[in-house]
Write a protein that binds this DNA or RNA. Structure first.
Lengths: 342, 342
DNA sequence: ATTAGCACTCTTGTTTGGTGAGTGCTAAAT
DNA sequence: ATTTAGCACTCACCAAACAAGAGTGCTAAT
């Protein structure tokens, strides 16, 4: 069991290292206000903290550095309630006050804001659309040969795809198709659309259209095409600026992950659905993140999980500030979403 | 004036350096087939080439490396016609054969392809929309309070924006607005839309609607909102993998440019409207690119410039291969675009 | 229980010397 | 008049050697 003094020493070590990125020695600690003991005393405690695996030396002699386990302990037990600076809160307020008409925009801005306030890289998994319903389907002919199919959801999201009008397809026939689709699919939750298409709608189309095969193939390819990843990044370059990452290969692998592992990231984010969560160093599953901390906060609407905000930084992260920010931000997102729906 | 032998020596130096990224010395050159002279002879010629500023030493002794001027000379006079490997051509063919229905998709794929084939970073400025015409305007109400405004162009491009229905605005009034807009703006080239809006349409709306002020403000904010940058990247991480960039700060500045200087890049690309162009090292205007080569190739439709393909790599770039690839690709884009329009 | 003192360790920076690749020049060969 | 062989010279690179400084661990005194 750690003594009060040891706790304070650990706290000082972590705080100082987070601030300076430099190992800190017993002498330096003893000059701090928080622990007014001699360097020797502190050394003894540090030896014990090291024994417990909470701090480490970078080499035989020279200050201590928090270990991964140390950060974990810090996050779990030593986090001082941080209150955001006026600038921070006003920046957040301002971002959310700008009357943004689209959820996508809100999310985008949030990502930008979060990365700007923290100097880390933010990643937001956009609102899941499983609950949203199809509102309207429409086909517009652009020329004699091409047309564009529009899908609008009740959240104002629009998907579109242009296509070449099948030979021999008459305008009136397209209209019939659209009518059938609207009739049968409007109001249906997105996740159920493919199913409906393959049952009811298929039947109806077969009965009422001539070029059933081509039409149906078109529709399937459009509706089944997987949703684009709703992953928004902010400050991609920030993570490279951290002094923690000096090793060029580390930078490369991190960067490659950000650019090319969208799928893995999305999967990771979808896994974190409850509140705030911090993964430190090797607690992360992705290889490139072994020296990073990854903080996630989910946001929801009416208790249903909608998406996840995440922040990627070095393990030497300003946890207390970051956690406060993300707490606020995910709440703001939740309420923004609720406002939006009403 | 350079002798035949000096030309060949320069060629060998550049070719070899492009391949190995290592300085090459007289002895190594003399063993090559292309120049069967003794090392001493070659040394004399190299001295002269250096005098002319075409090659440099990295330090007093140790092989030569092409200078920027050397690359320039190489590109201008020494480029051997490169014929693409079967793999390359078939990869290109395959990319363009997939029947893609949207120009945006084609461009996106092209960027991916180009970066994959070269291991550099590709940047494509998407087809300019100045010539495209507004096809259709529509408002869909989503709920009692929200609606979404859709704009469709004759190229199948869709812009949308949801908004809160102004208080006291009746459904019939919105319909009237949409009718006016369609009546007056359909078929108008995009670049002229803002102008039309402020003249004819403004008048008409004033006469026929009650909430003129709010409506007009809405419309302006939507239509004036600057077009999103049509800038597509491929292989953003590739450039970091080049052995040429070992310096962490160089990597950082390059990366920051890619992530945050979209505007400058777009501006740069818009400036290059004729054929193939190569900017080497300090010929580039952007600071971060001082050690890079930037190859641009514009594509067009009916002689009108549509967009620009670009490739960003180290000055030690496989010019001959890259130029061939980009030549082919820009042609493919041109013809894809023409196909699309017909 | 705390602290002062001291020997010890290990990094960091600097110097020193050796090696090898590659050059520049001169004199000989073609 | 070219081309080539030969040789002294330069400089990056590497490793070893060394001093300085920061910080530790332990012991003995407070």
């Amino acid at each position: 069991m750690l003594t009060e003094r040891q706790l304070r020493i650990l706290q000082v070590i972590v705080d100082d290292f987070i601030e300076t990125a430099q190992p800190i020695g017993s002498r330096a600690i003893s000059t701090k206000q928080e622990v007014s003991y001699s360097a020797a005393t502190i050394r003894n405690d540090m030896a014990e903290l090291e024994q417990l695996g909470l701090i480490e030396k970078t080499h035989t002699s020279s200050g201590r550095v928090p270990s991964e386990k140390g950060y974990r302990f810090y996050v779990d037990h030593l986090l001082t309630p941080f209150h955001l600076s006026r600038q921070d809160t006003s920046a957040i307020k301002q971002t959310f006050s700008a009357n943004m008409r689209e959820m996508e925009e809100v999310v985008q801005q949030s990502a930008a804001l979060l990365s700007e306030l923290t100097n880390y890289t933010s990643i937001i998994l956009g609102p899941e659309m499983l609950e949203t319903k199809l509102k309207h389907i429409q086909i517009l002919t652009l020329s004699d040969f091409t047309a564009v199919l529009l899908l609008v959801t009740d959240t104002g999201h629009v998907e579109h795809k242009s296509f070449r009008i099948p030979d021999g397809m008459h305008h009136s026939e397209m209209e019939r198709v659209v009518n059938i689709l609207n009739d049968r699919l409007a109001g249906v939750p997105l996740m159920m659309v493919p199913g409906r298409l393959r049952t009811e709608v298929q039947e109806l189309l077969k009965q009422h259209t001539e070029n059933f095969d081509t039409i149906f193939a078109y529709l399937r390819s459009f509706i089944d095409s997987d949703q684009p990843l709703k992953l928004y990044f902010g400050g991609k370059a920030n993570i490279l600026m951290q002094p923690d990452f000096q090793d060029i290969n580390k930078i490369r692998s991190l960067y490659t992950m950000i650019e090319e592992e969208g799928e893995s990231l999305a999967h990771l984010l979808r896994g974190e659905q409850n509140g705030l969560h911090v993964a430190i160093g090797t607690e992360n599953k992705l290889d490139a993140m072994q020296d990073c901390s990854f903080v996630t906060a989910s946001y929801s609407a009416d208790g249903v999980h909608m998406g996840t905000v995440a922040l990627l930084g070095p393990t030497r992260m300003e946890y207390s500030r970051v956690l406060s920010l993300m707490h606020v931000l995910s709440n703001k997102l939740t309420s923004a979403y609720q406002d939006w729906q009403k």
